[in-house]
Amino acid sequence: MNRPERFGLARFDAVSRGRFAAVLLAFVLITPGCRPHREGVGEEEGPAVEGGELSRSAVLYFESDGGELAGERREIFPGNPSREAFARALLAALAGGSESSSRRAVVPPALETEGIFFDDMGGLFLDLKGASLRSWRWGSSSELAFVRAVVRTMGGSFPDVSRVTFLIDGERVESIAGHVGATRPFEVAEWR
């Protein structure tokens, strides 16, 4: 048995082959993947609708063994789409701790915010409740780790934010816990 017979193509004469080729060419040409890129009203399914489950991807920073910070990719569900809500959800996730047992949170678990503000020049202001910071195990190391973890997380999650300012109970402070100067904003590029 020769090949054409095996595939049932024995009766394929030259005319039939020509017709088949034409049909095949037409099929290829109308295949959507071959249509040129264009803008205009689509003829396929309608647009997606607003609503549904809201989330954003983010990299959160926790302290790993040896005191180094390690990034952890997480899905954050901020509840509403505002930037402030996302920043608040990020802080809550940082305070909530890592999914890995080998990493520790460097943000106090009881951390609460008075307010979160963005300015239009790349500034993010995190106004923290002083009372929620008090019971934490602060030292130079943990204060540096706190600043680094929060600034890195915020800077990575809001690419237009270039500096983060910490306020406590609505006021600028010399320092969050008596060591690292907090009178100036922390530059994201410097603390990454």
């Binding site: 647009p47 997606a48 609708v49 609503g51 549904g52 489950e53 989330s55 789409p81 237009d160």
Partner: peptide
């Protein structure tokens, strides 16, 4: 992650904003 985009996912409709 790259563009700081919020995602609204409707798993029932397989649509995302």
């Amino acid at each position: 992650l790259l563009y700081g985009a919020s995602k609204f996912w409707r798993s029932d409709l397989l649509k995302m904003t």
